[in-house]
Design a protein around this nucleic acid. Structure first.
Lengths: 350, 350
DNA sequence: TTGTAGGCGTTATCAT
DNA sequence: ATGATAACGCCTACAA
């Protein structure tokens, strides 16, 4: 006696954990399982539901039927799931992107399989494999490195799009215009008269930090100024990275009069270091951040920063990915950014 | 000709998107599919791999075999997936919990199906249904309301645990000791001599805010002081909520000399409002926050706050949930918190 | 409109 | 140790 009985009463085939299956619905409604399946996935036909269709609907409602999407995915070969690889999720920028990715995906009928591995390529590629094993229809990856074994990403069975960071131009990515952002931030400080500007540059493997620093160099170049390499210090993206980086810079024999931190969190760390050294912002030190996360507008000294369209990045990445899943070519995009001047920067008064 | 051929060459049955299936491995190794399945899920037996097992292993490696976990889930009735419902993911506290949940789950071999719906009960329950449809083995929910139609959560086919907030004592939850945190924060201000303390209390539906305010009342009660209800203003948990709440409080005829904001983000908003009014912190206004998110230690005025064990909450929630999935009873826990005194609070000097 | 049959890729039970 | 076989729950031609 298996499950392929001919039980006329229906209501059998309990499925896992007692959940009603299609089979149970069909039994209770006295129709064949395929009929139940069809009815449940149709919208009401022009001339209304047939008698048996109504019974199916009623049975599904009474039994609290929840379709088993694992089974249907197996059959249809589509999981309606997007894999997301987002290290450093605790960072506001990443979390904001993730939230917008989820909203966009959800309103398109997709769900998210999320992983937030360490920010290392090995761990990220491993995460990709896990996700593929789960049959995701596409992938969004937020923190690829500029170098490393990421060539493995070129030949995947599903479309992949990068966001936040890009690993190089060979991969479609939805990112902000980091070079322009870095340039604009720096030009703002140069225009205020600063000539020794320090940079808390982030890690060398992140396109965001690297390109914002490129913009920093570009701004100098446009004014025929040379960059003192001692003023560019690398760090991580955390608060503490900003603290350490700023102390390094401010301890120099000829310290900077302004510091550009490539993200807001580190910029807050820079503020902390300034306070520890008894320096006032912006009187003794000007500071520019990057991203415009919500808190920085309300700090005791509101932070001048570059606004980056984080929420839009997530939504657009999803849009492009879904288009690619639908068969279109996969297109990246570089979104414009804009400087927001607040109170942490002032003109050099000597 | 279907797929049940007897093709001796193997390498057929391309599976979706050209991925190799078990069938293909078996074909290439010249063994039956069930043998391939077994070999691939065994560890090396005592006397080493048999000849055919070696061929299976080789074939899998050559073809880059990735098991289709959707198929295996269907068969085993376990998805090895945890459903996560976390509204307000962009908030550092929530994102930190989410990250620790993911790490703990991943190291236990589970993956996360994440959804971050609006912070309303209807949307959250809808999310639960979607997740159940995807056959998650258990659920973690971070933002349940104290009231609303959450009775539906009592009779689910899989274990559910709350974290961050709890919806009432009827549901197992891993949360911080919010009453004690609120009491400690308030007692700190009372000990400094403050007698008119304002509260930016968060929304009425969140146990976190509500219980922190309970602690606030308790601290007064323990000193036989009465709370002026005009000093308790509700808000959301965002920066702007803090700004608005603080302005409301500071515009009172008899304004507070200190403000307790039930989360750090709102506390930063309070700082912003103070700045807008030309008040110095802590000289003119003392401020206490809650959570101890990383940035507050480095603010120009480092924030006094209550440290809550966010990362531990996530990890513990996963631990308890997995135990429940394994058949154990589902147990919640209330984790201790501690006050961190920094520079945003000072004794009342008059 | 409804029923029939076969299969999605994997695993578990049996027998060999 | 390996092979045959039958599901897991659902979907989709195709036939009636």
């Amino acid at each position: 006696m298996g499950t392929t009985d001919t039980d006329p009463a229906g209501d059998r085939h309990p499925g896992r954990r007692g959940e009603a299956s299609l089979q149970a619905i069909a039994g209770r409604a006295g129709v064949h399982i395929s009929t139940a399946s069809r009815v449940l996935r149709q919208t009401e036909p022009a001339r209304g539901w047939s008698a048996s269709a109504q019974r199916v609907l009623a049975a599904a409602a009474e039994l609290g039927y929840r379709p088993n999407r694992i089974a249907s995915s197996l059959r249809t070969r589509r999981s309606n799931t997007i894999g997301v690889v987002m290290p450093r999720l605790a960072d506001t920028v990443i979390a904001t992107i993730c939230q917008s990715v989820e909203s966009a995906a959800r309103s398109a009928g997709y769900q998210l399989l999320l992983t937030t591995p360490p920010d290392e390529m090995g761990a990220q590629l491993e995460a990709v494999d896990f996700l593929l094993s789960r049959q995701v229809d596409g992938l969004i990856v937020s923190s690829l490195h500029l170098s490393g074994p990421n060539a493995r990403l070129t030949d995947l069975p599903v479309p992949v799009i990068a966001t936040n960071r890009h690993p190089g131009s060979w991969m479609p990515a939805v990112v902000g215009d980091d070079v322009d952002g870095g340039r604009t931030a720096t030009e703002h400080l140069l225009a205020l008269g600063h000539r020794r500007i320090g940079v808390v540059a982030g890690p060398r493997h992140a396109s965001t930090g690297v390109e914002r620093v490129e913009g920093f160099r570009l701004a100098h170049q446009q004014r025929d100024l040379v960059v003192d390499e001692a003023l560019v210090v690398h760090s991580d993206f955390e608060v503490e990275g900003g603290v350490v980086g700023a102390h390094t810079l401010l301890a120099l024999a000829d310290p900077p009069t302004a510091i550009f931190a490539v993200n807001d969190t580190a910029a807050i760390g820079v503020m902390g270091a300034a306070r520890q050294r008894g320096m006032r912002v912006p009187d003794d030190l000007s500071i520019v951040g990057y991203n415009d996360i919500p808190v920085v507008a309300q700090l005791p000294t509101p932070l001048t920063t570059v606004h980056s369209p984080t929420a839009m990045m997530g939504a657009l990445a999803v849009e492009r990915l879904l288009a690619a899943i639908g068969g279109d070519p996969l297109l990246g995009e570089t979104l414009p950014v804009s400087l927001v001047v607040r109170s942490s920067t002032a003109s050099l008064s000597r």
